[in-house]
Design a protein around this nucleic acid. Sequence first.
RNA 1: GCGCGGGUGGCGGAACUGGUAGACGCCCGGGACUUAAAAUCCCGUGCCGCAAGGCGUGCGGGUUCGAUUCCCGCCCCGCGCACCA
Length: 865
Amino acid sequence: MQEAYQPAAIEADAQAFWETAGTFRAVEDPSRLKYYCLSMFPYPSGRLHMGHVRNYTIGDVLSRFMRMQGRNVLQPMGWDAFGLPAENAAMANHVPPAQWTDDNIANMKRQLKALGFGIDWQRELATCKPDYYRWNQWFFLRMLEKGIAYNKTGTVNWDPVDQTVLANEQVIDGRGWRTGALIEKREIPMYYLAITQYAEELLGDVQGLEGWPERVRIMQANWIGKSEGLNIAFPYSLGGERHVLRVFTTRADTVMGVTFMAVAAEHPLATHAAKTNATLAAFIEECKRGSVMEADMATMEKKGVPTGLTVEHPLTGAAIPVWVGNYVLMGYGEGAVMGVPGHDQRDFEFANKYGIDIQQVIDVDGQPYSTEQWQPWYGEYGLCVNSGAYNGLNYEQTIDAVVASLHERQLGAKQVQWRLRDWGISRQRYWGCPIPIIHCDACGVVPVPDQDLPVLLPDDLVPDGSGSPLNKLDSFIKCVCPTCQKPARRETDTMDTFVDSSWYFLRFASAHNGQAMVDERVNYWLPVDQYIGGIEHAILHLLYSRFWTKVMRDLGLTTLREPFANLLTQGMVRNSIYFRKPASGRIVYFNPTEVTVDTDDKGAPIGARLKADGEPVEIGGIGTMSKSKNNGVDPQSFIDRYGADTARLFMMFAAPPELSLDWSDEGAEGASRFIKRLWKAVHAHVNGPAVTPMATDRLNDAERDLRRLAHQTLAKVTDDIGRRRVFNTAIAAVMELLNAITRFDRAEPQAAAITQEALEIAVLSLSPVVPHVCHALWSALGHERAIIDEPWPVVDPTALTQAAMELMIQINGKLRSKITVAVGTDEASIREAALSDATARRFIGEATVRKVIVVPGKLVNVVVA
RNA sequence: GCGCGGGUGGCGGAACUGGUAGACGCCCGGGACUUAAAAUCCCGUGCCGCAAGGCGUGCGGGUUCGAUUCCCGCCCCGCGCACCA
């Protein structure tokens, strides 16, 4: 073995070995227990970033660990290759998105290989390739047949200058990112997937996903948002006809306090009233500008204009004025809400602003009510007051009575309402999967027949920002109606890229099947045993994938109910931010590599200077690595300098996987140092005295201590990786073991045998994290078989036994002393030993001992007064 | 605004089920080796205090023999909010 640790050679050698042996090729084998380990596939942006390195290292550690545990492991990789960045790059460089994407995939694949991930590359897929996206189209047609896919209008951001639809991220402060034009909302026809038909099952099943983080389950449940309430109809007359305005409410106990109604700007009532009301028409126009985003809707100023129309209160017949509110969403319920300013904070503020009547109709413990100032209790449940027949009733009683009255008048009933909305999948963009529809003047909307699939996306276009280039491409648009054979137009909208990522995990298990979307191999591999990805995907991607999986089951393609048995949501990778803010002009950010940090004599930072000019820069705290803050660290240059193992080790050591991880050059340096120390320890050992068979019954204290520590470490690593899914503490434990090995006296009689065992445990324990160096060290330790093919080692329980243990002594809960007792000492003796301990007696003094609490194996607490 | 997390030394973090707060690593300080420096190795390192001891897990309260851990109220930071992926 070489004396110096040389990562480049070691890593190339290990990777060549795995490649030649086909180590990571996954083959279905019903006789073996499988382990499907999946990391979220990347968008092929061109270069790996540290978030990818972290994500894929976690997956690789688990995959290698499980492989050594005897599982048949599948770890695939693919490319989420459709989407907006390719179009933006195309515009900037005049290169077709297809070519840009292919180049990026080649580059990132090379980087992934250099990191040594145990991926079965034979199953690689890219969602922008027809052999993948044809099945999006095929399945869309099946959903259309079942009524799960359907057409209705939806709201989009319209840039009136470029005459194009913009994504939310392309709208900045209400203006188009390229044109600066004020953005308008526009209603256009779109295809939707009826995810709300699955709301009940999606909600019910998410509670049972015990392998998912609790917080993700809660977020999903809240997103689906089941609420049980009442649908109430407010009648009105218009043009001599009777109509009703329907609202949904969970607070029907406050219905006697309704003093106004609010409808969305797009509501038919608003449109009708605006015909004769210029102020209202102008307000509706104002509402049409502005954002379609929920966060903006929730934070903007609540405004309204009266329509001049009234509806009748369903229980009292009183006339209720109807307003148009900019905060009412057409897409939620029927685009109308009832206003109860007495007991809803938003309505209270609205009513105060516009001088609308405020009525108290709920009393909570007789507290005084004032319309001047909102109090939190106004929104709580209580007893009805000022509510006629309902006075004195509690919430449940009132609901029952109101339901009965409304039912009698046929003006309302109980209703379950979902926050979840159907999934709009139409995108007015080029670089996506074409929606397989043909528009025929004679036959209307005609699905593309299965035998004509896939509808190929032309791959040589370059968008110019003025809408989808497909709209201008006759060779794509012009087609023949499959029904009547007359000339027809092809649909130019493409699918949301969430469609692509909603089933790729199934395709990995059915790789390269040209005849079917999925096949029986899915039954072997699925569900995914461990899914790993960023917390930012906790809701949408995971919910859509769960939905898609259930639809595939209902259409008979699989029997799978849930796709992901266990989920690990990894935190962000962050780094320091440095900037200068010139007196005029915008902030300039400096990459941390360009900056020197000055510290005081305790190492606390007191300032920072730019290396280039030595002048100070501002310290902007710490934030997620991003282009805009110029605080990214390029994995490639790091790997070139330190090697893949060091990158992997630092990523796994610096923080537990679920928390955000702060990059640190010094910390990475420490990781490198540890690998060198390990290398050195093995080198010293194999060049020392020959290993003789270990006589475990003749070990001295030092030998027994090191052997116990080695097996304790193994037990901890096995539990940390296997059960707790944390790696930083596992690595810390091996560091402690290595420290002990280094300190261990080589003159001890059985030193070589004990050291051999301890080093083997250290190397095996670390091999999932730093596989290349462990591959080399294992062979240096004298093994023929490659470490990746070794079974995970087993703890020897006899190595763990101990004769004595230390107990803490507390007086009134404060740590005061320690005693050492033999293992197995009975409680009475422990109590006596504690009370007779000199230090303890000093603290007890003259006080009376009230109580002695003995916690076995931990401590004794003496309560005195 | 709403939903969900997080907050522990100079820094990243550990403490898994209410029982030794600060494992491990970084930084910093001291020493060894060296002509010298780097690298490496050894020692120290929560804060205050000469010490005895006191204080200490974002802030304020509570439960408990005992709270980083449980409960209530607040502050700050991060993620998501349906067309970024």
